[in-house]
Simulated scan of single mutants.
Amino acid sequence: MDTTISRTIEPSLSKVPQITLGFWIVKIVATTLGETGGDWVTMSLKLGYLIGSAIFAVFFIALVAGQINARRFQPALFWATIVATTTLGTTLADFFDRSVGVGYPGGVAIILALLLLSLLIWYRSEGTVSVQSITTARAEWFYWITVLFSQTLGTALGDWVAGEDRGGLGLGYGDGAMLFGAGLVIVGGLYFWPRVSRTLVFWAAFVLTRPLGATLGDFFDKPVADGGLEMSRLYASLILLAFIVVWVAVVPQRAAGEPAQ
């Protein structure tokens, strides 16, 4: 077996951050950036969903490899990898929905199946899918693959709820964002219910933040006639990227399991 895959990481050197309110704020901004950035490459630059997915897949694999080979938690590297999953998730979801031609419901069904399969294999291999127990490089790969599928599912859900074509529900971007925001509030309330698994709550929230970010991203760049702000995808992406960079540089973050200073 590859020693890179089987090596053990000390719990005190966990390379994922503690789950705090700040984590979810940056996660939502990163998912919004994934939507605007992915659409900029595939639509504004007219590279298409397949080429766009291939480009972002290269960044995703390179950043995950860097994250796994890192010896400690590095906020900039972690969030760069999250952004890579959001942009790749955007282009993959659009590829399934539009290029493959399965429509929004079909795309959601396919990606949901992939996410559940990823969680099942991870659980069968490691005995848990909790982000607090990522202690091997193999578990890290499972984590990032599951994150990618959850981001892709979130994009497909957002498009399905907001869109009117391809079997969409047609709620629009504003109402879609409010719907997913309400869902996050409910999931957040379940966190304080002792009988509900914290791991289940985490992954439910992780999936729901993606369609919230997707609908917010569409709200920025879609035409005013369609309920958007008609902002340049490039400018919107740069503003969101600047927010993440400043947040990571200014706000202290600790690795999961690391005691408070």
Rank of each mutant, 00 (worst) to 15 (best):
E164L: 05
E164T: 11
G22S: 15
L184I: 04
W203Q: 05
G228Q: 11
M231D: 00
K222P: 00
F219G: 04
G181E: 12
G34W: 06
T209D: 00
T81G: 10
A225H: 06
L171S: 14
S237Q: 03
G154D: 07
Q261K: 15
I68F: 02
S133M: 15
A255R: 14
Y49I: 03
L153K: 05
V100I: 14
S197E: 09
L45H: 00
L234F: 13
A57K: 13
T146H: 00
A109C: 09
T81L: 06
G170I: 08
A113C: 07
Q74I: 12
G228M: 11
D226A: 14
V83E: 06
V201K: 09
G176N: 04
A255L: 11
G34K: 04
L114P: 01
T32P: 09
G22P: 11
G103T: 12
I186K: 02
V224H: 10
P194L: 03
G22K: 14
I51N: 14
V16W: 12
A249G: 15
E35S: 08
E10V: 06
L171M: 15
I55W: 11
P211Y: 02
I121G: 11
T85Y: 03
D165S: 06
E35G: 09
V147C: 12
L216V: 02
P259L: 01
E140T: 06
A242E: 03
R195M: 00
L169P: 03
A242C: 03
I145A: 13
P211D: 01
A113P: 04
F56P: 09
D39G: 14
Q261G: 10
L47A: 01
A30M: 09
R124F: 03
L13P: 04
L157Y: 01
D2I: 07
W122H: 15
L208Y: 01
V108A: 08
T146E: 00
W247C: 07
D97I: 14
R166V: 02
G172K: 10
T3K: 13
P105K: 12
T215H: 02
W40S: 04
L241D: 05
I28L: 12
F96N: 12
G106T: 06
Y191G: 02
S118V: 02
G48T: 11
A80L: 15
G89M: 10
I68T: 10
P75C: 04
V201Q: 14
A93V: 00
D159V: 10
T86N: 03
D94M: 02
A177I: 05
